[in-house]
Design a protein around this nucleic acid. Structure first.
Lengths: 363, 363
DNA sequence: CTGTTAGCGCTTTCAG
DNA sequence: CTGAAAGCGCTAACAG
């Protein structure tokens, strides 16, 4: 609103009050150029007397940088993303950067809109967890226009960006291996897997072992599924289609149904691919009257607050959310300030942490 | 980074490509002034051919508005705030606004920093849940400088701002009244209440009934406590200090200790003042071997995911988070676009919703 | 309906 | 070390 304009003192006002030129005032207030200490002090006093606040729009116009990053996730209110956002925001604040944020609810259309707005604001970079692996032209275009992107959690390998995520496959491998070591042979997996057509699931399970496009896949749930298969392969155990609860889409209701179906085949353990799946799987377990861990052992990715409030507390494969958020921010700030182009991209893979609690029993 | 600058087409480029003046190009691309349809079309085509993206910095510089709001909360990752943020962000996105976000972890110092940055960015307004009721000079100064603020959840009455929050006192009154109606006489209250000196708690409980500064208090937990007392007063029941679990500071550990102390006085019901308190209170109940609701009925403010996952599910006094976020955004946008000053401030008070689940039993 | 021109507030030459 | 002046990309007057 114009009112703002009229109200704020400009550098010209400060310069006048301090009896110097605008150039000198600018040098005294900014970090650039040489100013005599006394002059600087006089200018600073004039500035604070006038409640002067530098106008970032002007600075951005001239320098090309607004000291601002954009951030796009599919669900701000999820415990996972909100933890990441929090650490990114704090890391950036300490270094003088702002975060603009958008929530896509998994819509690539909204993601595109958000990107367009960020471009108008000339953000210095974007942290994004892409909504749809098959709809990324806007991301690619952004990159081609010279934009910097760091992908988190979900990473589309075809895009030329830095990436930060859990080492999903390894973490799943570790978790499932523990279950196998504990004597479990029928281990259910509840995950989204919507990238895999249901009719192909069988062949993936069967042909497992041959080099595939698997490791290039987008969704964490897919990579975790690969780790699940790895663990079986290493242990010389066959993986069985009956144990795979593929949810059509990403909701706890869908997970509950999938888990319910799998339970009919009497697994002795169940792995939920993330916090959302965990809610559905846990409900299915309760609903069907299964006792944890007496009848079925239960493990889940992520580490939500409620895992420790239910009885027994849920054994988790926790992600280092704070670290994910900081690493993404660190990369973006580095690239922004060093002005280095994409000589090569960083692909940060962070280890998961297995938190043994009461929901797993040895057979 | 300068690279951005070099890379982006400007309105001059577009004007040249379309064989019109910059003014015409501006009119065609912006929403202002008259342009012949064919001209507009030509300009738009030139613009998209050149990947033209309007530079908000320039627009902001001239119009004084960056179409951006700031948002400051104490904990982005809490289920409560992240839900609010999500709805604010979406409401604003649909109307062409951006949200800059900061997290204070309850620090007024960080709040001040965040505010300063927002001022530099010439945000059109700020949504804030203040960190500290006794340290608000920066907020007051911001307002005096012509800034617009909407307070949410925690509202400092002395500040001239719009406010949006739950009708805490009424919601607590309703919740506690239900417990009383169900036959409960010893109802514990677990809340932060750090604004009340412990030695004054007794007199507040005793002297309850006389008009006090109570309704002007800052923290929701205080207002909810007043509602708790109201319910007792209306029912003609004495409130008892033994039943008040005042946590020194805001943490689940602290709440657990407070609840543990109160449990020694054998309450038949317990009300947690918010989600954080609920975790501690719930743990205390479990730890002390109390069965819910057989031994102690349990009710909590907020409605976190886990309330429905534990057994029995927790009866809740839910806040309309999405509505809080939208109302705050609505007010800010209205004030921004209508450019109306603070003729009078809006004080939106939203009703809580009691969700009866299994954790309360009638005596 | 369209073009010319003058800034918005700041930084950056380039001279002193 | 300081000042004058030229823009960054856009919009707002004011003529045509």
């Amino acid at each position: 609103m114009p009112a703002n304009k009229a109200r704020h003192a400009t550098i010209v006002d400060v310069a006048k009050a301090a009896n110097v030129s605008v150039a000198t005032a600018g040098r005294a207030l900014g970090q650039y150029g040489y100013v005599r200490p006394e002059t600087r002090k006089a200018v600073q006093e004039a500035a604070s007397a006038l409640h002067y606040k530098k106008n970032m729009a002007a600075q951005s116009l001239i320098s090309g940088s607004a000291k601002t990053f954009g951030m796009i996730v599919s669900d701000i209110s999820s415990e996972f993303y909100s933890n990441i956002i929090k650490s990114t925001v704090n890391y950036c604040r300490e270094r003088g950067y702002c975060i603009l944020i958008y929530d896509t609810h998994e819509s690539a259309k909204i993601e595109r809109e958000a990107l367009a707005i960020f471009q108008k604001h000339r953000v210095d970079g974007i942290i994004v967890s892409p909504a749809d692996s098959r709809n990324v032209d806007h991301l690619r275009e952004f990159i081609d226009d010279g934009g910097r992107i760091v992908q988190i959690d979900r990473c589309i390998p075809e895009l030329n960006t830095d990436t930060v995520m859990l080492d999903n496959r390894e973490a799943a491998f570790q978790g499932v291996s523990r279950l196998i070591a504990a004597g479990h042979r029928k281990i259910a997996y509840i995950g989204e897997l919507h990238e895999i057509r249901p009719d192909l699931l069988q062949s993936i399970v069967n042909k497992y072992g041959r080099p595939s496009r698997a490791r290039r896949a987008f969704a964490p749930s897919y990579q975790r599924f690969m780790g699940y298969l790895d663990a079986h392969a290493v242990a010389g155990l066959p993986a069985c289609l009956d144990m795979i609860g593929r949810t059509g889409h990403y909701s706890s209701e869908s997970a509950q149904r999938a888990a319910g179906r799998v339970l009919m085949h009497e697994p002795t353990a169940m792995l939920a691919a993330d916090g959302m799946m965990a809610i559905g799987a846990f409900r299915a377990l309760k609903t069907s009257g299964m006792r944890i861990p007496e009848d079925v052992s239960f493990v889940s990715f992520d580490d939500l607050d409620w895992y420790q409030l239910v009885d027994p507390p849920v054994t988790a494969i926790a992600q280092p959310c704070a670290q994910i958020g900081e690493e993404a921010a660190r990369i973006l700030i580095q690239r922004t300030e060093e002005k280095i182009g994409p000589v090569h991209y960083e692909h940060v893979r962070l280890p998961g942490h297995i938190l043994m609690r009461g929901s797993v029993r040895a057979l």
